[in-house]
Amino acid sequence: MEKYVHRRSDRHLPPVSLIVFAALLCGFALVNLFWPKRENSELENRKLAQMPVFSVKTLLNGKWQDDFSTYLQDQVALRDGWINLESAVNALAFGKTEESGILNGKDGWMFTKLFTVSTDTEKQLGKNISAVTNFAQRYPGRVTFLLAPSASDIYPEMLPANAPMVDEDAMLDDIFAQVQASGADVIDMRDDYRANKDQYLYFKTDHHWTPDGAYRAYQQFCTLKNLTPFDCNVYTKITVPDFYGTHYSATRRWNAQADSFSYYDLPNQMTVYKVNGEADYEPVKTEGLMNLAKLDTRDKYGAFLDGNNGYSVIEGNGTGSILVVKDSYANSFIPYLTANYAKIGVVDFRGLAYGLDSTIEKEGYDQILILYNFQTFISDNKVIYLDRPTTLK
């Protein structure tokens, strides 16, 4: 009878290897223990998890363990480097073209993924269109609607191969037709952008248009209103290099090409208000149109108009007044309006959750410009504040 002799596997690690592995593991744990903890991640543009407060209740229901695990992930030593390494491996080894809802396109382009429009988004879009059309009907001859197309709609050849993006052109056609039927003026930039797509219209690493792209839209606005455009030769042009935007923060693309942008050194002042209620606001600060301190942060685009304030008023060099209702696309557009209007009101519904009729009546705005980008407009649940007619008491 054949006998089987049990032999100890020679696949076990030798003691020296075990000691080295244990030393590395303990060493990394010690590094993590003493590694400086951060409150925010500049590159990821978000707050990082902090050490959770311990309690018996959160321990028993498992919340403390989950929060502690998140804390360890967010505060791991060399976190930015690990994320960059993961992004490079995903792209080079696995050919991954999507990361956190962003598509890595050709020639360094990054695009917001939009393959489908959900039922909820379709409903919201219907409400937003109704809000704009109803508002335009309340202010006949005074409303202009500018909806910026997505970079993916202007540069589809730069998308990853066979990316099934939604038919943005068809959606824009429908939106513009409905808004125009309400009596509002409509500015559609698609033909102009496609004819000038060799220019620097959109950032590659960010979801915004560039100030150059915004200027082309501003020129169309001036043509529509019979205004003389801002003269770029009159003021000093300052270029900001090494801009990595929101798309880069999401993908951490290993071979990302830095963007840059320019702004003009304007003397105009902007007063930012604290919003207390409908047509009820008080001044908080008066400053220039660029918050230069933000040029030293990751969110350099946030320097324009010092970000997204609920209500602010800019002193212009022209005549009359205009109220701009907007998302952040307008932030690099609005400084050009200083050449045409004496007073420029700026409303961002993220900080002003009220109807505008009282403000328009109180401040006497002559014109209203509604300026959004397509992907924000179709899903933003705050556009409906336009459809809240009110009367100043």
Rank of each mutant, 00 (worst) to 15 (best):
Y4P: 12
Y4N: 14
R7A: 14
R8H: 14
P15D: 15
L18Q: 14
A29C: 13
L30E: 03
F34P: 03
E39A: 09
S41H: 00
E44N: 09
N45A: 05
N45S: 08
R46L: 10
M51F: 14
S55H: 07
T58N: 05
N61A: 06
N61M: 02
W64I: 07
Q65H: 11
Q65F: 13
Q73R: 14
D74Q: 03
A77M: 08
A77N: 08
L78T: 01
N84G: 15
V89E: 00
G95Y: 04
G95D: 09
G95H: 05
E98I: 11
S100C: 10
F115K: 12
F115D: 15
V117G: 09
T119Q: 10
K123P: 04
N128C: 08
I129E: 06
V132C: 00
T133Q: 03
N134M: 08
N134T: 07
A136M: 07
A136I: 01
T144Y: 12
T144R: 12
L146W: 05
L147R: 00
S150D: 00
S152M: 12
S152R: 03
D153S: 15
Y155G: 05
N162Q: 15
N162F: 11
N162D: 15
P164K: 11
E168M: 10
A170T: 15
D173M: 09
F176V: 07
Q180P: 11
S182L: 02
I187R: 08
I187F: 04
D192T: 14
Y193A: 08
K197H: 12
T205S: 09
W209A: 01
Y215V: 05
Y215H: 02
A217L: 00
T228F: 06
P229L: 04
Y235H: 12
T236E: 15
K237G: 01
I238A: 07
T239A: 04
T246S: 12
T246Q: 00
H247D: 04
T251M: 00
Q257G: 05
Y264F: 02
N268Y: 06
M270T: 07
T271F: 05
V272H: 04
A279Q: 09
D280I: 04
D280H: 06
Y281I: 09
P283I: 08
V284C: 07
M290P: 09
N291P: 09
L292T: 11
L295H: 01
D299G: 01
D299R: 04
F304Y: 10
G307N: 00
I314R: 08
G320W: 12
L323V: 10
K326E: 10
A342P: 04
A342N: 14
K343D: 11
K343M: 11
I344A: 03
V346I: 12
V347Y: 02
I360Q: 11
K362D: 08
G364W: 10
K382T: 15
Y385M: 11
P389W: 10
